[in-house]
Simulated scan of single mutants.
Amino acid sequence: MKVEIWSDVICPFCYIGKRNFETALEQFAERKNIEVIWKSFQLDASIPEVATESYAEYLVKRKGMAAEQVQGMLTNVTEMASQVGLDYHLDQSVIVNSQKAHQLIQFAKSKELGNEAEERLFSAFFTESKNIADTETLVRLGKDFGLEESELKASLEDEKYKYEITQDIQEAQNIGVTGVPFFVFDRKYAVSGAQPAEVFLQSLNKSFSEWRTSNPGATLAVTQANSCNIDGSCG
């Protein structure tokens, strides 16, 4: 069964949501039958590739909030992250456009490394204060989880992966996604936001139960005769 997750790697709640979903998945007995598909979503495509302001300054301007309110909000989300084992340093985060980071994710997905890409980029942005719009930085991050350098560099210039980002965003708009993280279970149920692990587990149980009813697996009526089996015995 497919679980699709729309996220942006500069969204603090997306990393927290990822952790809570993973906690639920660890508790889910049928996790081997779950296929997780990461989808791109850009919260603000107008952010420049070169950092011009801090995360707090960006939010003050974007949300029109007082600096004290923004600082309180960042303190709260840092505490939320800590509760799920994440170490945020939002005061040091390099606020840049996430387009190239999403290109890396799309390329990684083609190598079945989408989850590894998401994890590495989240950690780079929120914990290590890396510039995720810098090509050389992205190449190093991609190499960290097994991607090849020349292919990485090519992927960051490839229009194919830019197009796939656009497709993901358009698909999100078509199904009514207005914010991330956004989790879709078997295209029947959705969970919006960094919900507790129990909420994700409930959604997994409900959606998978229905999916299993429609996909019972192969059941064959077998007529037996003499044969050899995999341990080498015949009879």
Rank of each mutant, 00 (worst) to 15 (best):
Q69R: 08
V70C: 04
N226D: 14
K39L: 04
S82W: 00
A133T: 06
E164H: 13
G232I: 02
V177N: 09
R212S: 14
E22C: 04
S233L: 02
A117E: 11
F185C: 01
T127K: 12
A197H: 10
Q224T: 11
K32P: 05
I95R: 14
L74F: 07
E57V: 01
I95Q: 14
R187C: 04
T166Y: 07
S46K: 04
E57R: 03
D44Q: 00
Q167K: 15
S46F: 01
K162M: 10
N97R: 10
S192I: 02
I47G: 01
S123R: 15
S54V: 05
L147I: 02
L43S: 08
L86D: 05
N20E: 13
I230K: 13
N33R: 13
I230G: 02
K18V: 08
E149W: 02
M73L: 09
S98D: 01
E35W: 13
K130E: 11
P12T: 12
E118V: 14
A221T: 02
F182G: 01
F183S: 08
G176I: 01
A194G: 05
L141V: 03
S233R: 09
R31Q: 15
A154W: 07
G64L: 03
D168P: 03
A190D: 05
I230N: 00
L90I: 07
I132N: 06
R62G: 00
N131P: 10
Q92S: 12
E35A: 05
S98K: 09
G17L: 06
I16R: 00
D44L: 03
S203V: 03
T213Y: 10
L113C: 01
L152F: 12
S129Y: 06
W6G: 10
V94H: 02
A197D: 08
Y163D: 15
T135M: 07
S7E: 09
G179Q: 10
F182E: 03
Y163M: 13
E119D: 10
T137E: 08
P216K: 00
T127N: 12
A218E: 04
L147R: 10
E164D: 11
D8H: 08
K63E: 09
K32D: 15
I165F: 01
H102K: 00
K188W: 07
F21H: 09
K32H: 14
T23A: 12
S203N: 12
T219K: 14
S54N: 05
E118T: 10
A108Q: 12
Q83L: 12
T219N: 13
K61P: 07
R187F: 08
S192L: 06
D158L: 08
Q195M: 07
E30Q: 15
K18P: 08
S46I: 00
L141N: 08
D158S: 12
E57D: 15
E149P: 06
L156A: 03
